[in-house]
């Protein structure tokens, strides 16, 4: 079809072709994951190794960010609440914001930057240096060893990191509230747990699982399909982050609609 067109039409047509080819490739990659994840042999040892890398190695950055988010958000919310003389609502406001949206979102965005880029770059460099081919010729399924393990690890670890971020953000918020409003830790956490429901926590966890899966699968897909040597590795890492972040926001929006639907039941 593209051969019979000229100039801009041809460029446009080629782009559309490329888009659909890319979409098909991504779909097949996703399909392959769901097939391979059930087929033995299972690479348990590698899954554990990846869980450690994704989870433990992200802790310092997540800890700092979570804590600062708690302090900053509390500080920024205080003036608005104090206008209505409602600063006592700060713990409730913060807990809802942190558990429902900020904890999962901040963790996922940081992990997309740190974990997604590292997966994209690592698999990309393995691809261009023929390490993936080397696995294949030694009768090992590289998709199972590299992709399935990393996607599973990020799917399991992101919800755990989200819980940890939530806790640290609340601790940051408590520090701020304690200094300014002289609220004790027990009063603070009673208000926190009074204002959040089971639906808040469960939707946050389900959402985090989806975010973790997205970060893993996008990083692996971009790395696995990288070309053009070292330049391609850089592009794979970069596009893994951009695409994962974009999808995380879309998923956040969708999860908001779904959770609101359940809230109204």
């Amino acid at each position: 079809m593209a051969e019979n067109l000229k100039g801009n039409e041809k460029v446009f047509s080629t782009r559309i072709d490329k888009f659909f080819v890319g979409l098909e490739r991504a779909f097949n990659f996703l399909k392959k994951f769901f097939v391979e994840v059930w087929v033995p042999p299972y690479e348990f040892k590698e899954v554990i190794r990846q869980c450690y890398r994704i989870g433990y190695n992200s802790l310092p950055l997540i800890s700092l960010t979570g804590f600062i988010v708690g302090i900053v958000f509390t500080n920024q919310s205080r003036p608005s609440l104090s206008e209505f003389g409602a600063t006592s609502w700060l713990p409730a406001l913060i807990s809802i914001a942190v558990v429902r949206a900020m904890g999962p979102l901040v963790t996922a965005l940081i992990a997309a930057g740190k974990v997604g880029s590292s997966i994209g770059a690592e698999i990309g460099s393995m691809k261009v240096t023929e390490q993936i081919d080397a696995m294949e010729v030694s009768a090992t399924n590289p998709f199972k060893f590299l992709v399935v393990t990393r996607v599973l690890a990020s799917t399991f670890m992101i919800p755990i990191l989200v819980l940890y971020t939530d806790f640290l953000a609340l601790m940051g918020a408590f520090l701020n509230v304690n200094v300014n409003e002289k609220v004790s830790i027990s009063t603070f956490f009673v208000q926190v747990f009074d204002s959040i429901s089971f639906l808040d926590i469960s939707s946050s966890m389900v959402k985090s699982l989806v975010f973790g899966f997205t970060i893993g699968i996008v990083g692996c897909y971009k790395g696995y399909n990288s070309t053009k040597g070292t330049e391609g590795v850089g592009k794979a890492a970069n596009s893994a982050v951009v695409m994962a972040m974009f999808l995380i926001f879309i998923e956040e929006l969708l999860s908001l609609q779904i959770t609101n639907f359940f809230r109204q039941l």
Binding site: E122, E130, A134, V137, S138, A139, T140
Partner: peptide
């Protein structure tokens, strides 16, 4: 039954020499 020696060696960067050699062994 076929050994393939790659142009750029294709050793697994994240593994030691021992782990590189064990890799095909433990799986097959």
């Amino acid at each position: 039954k076929i050994g393939f020696s790659f142009q750029a060696s294709a050793l697994y960067d994240s593994m030691t020499v021992r782990e590189n050699l064990e890799f095909p062994l433990v799986r097959n």
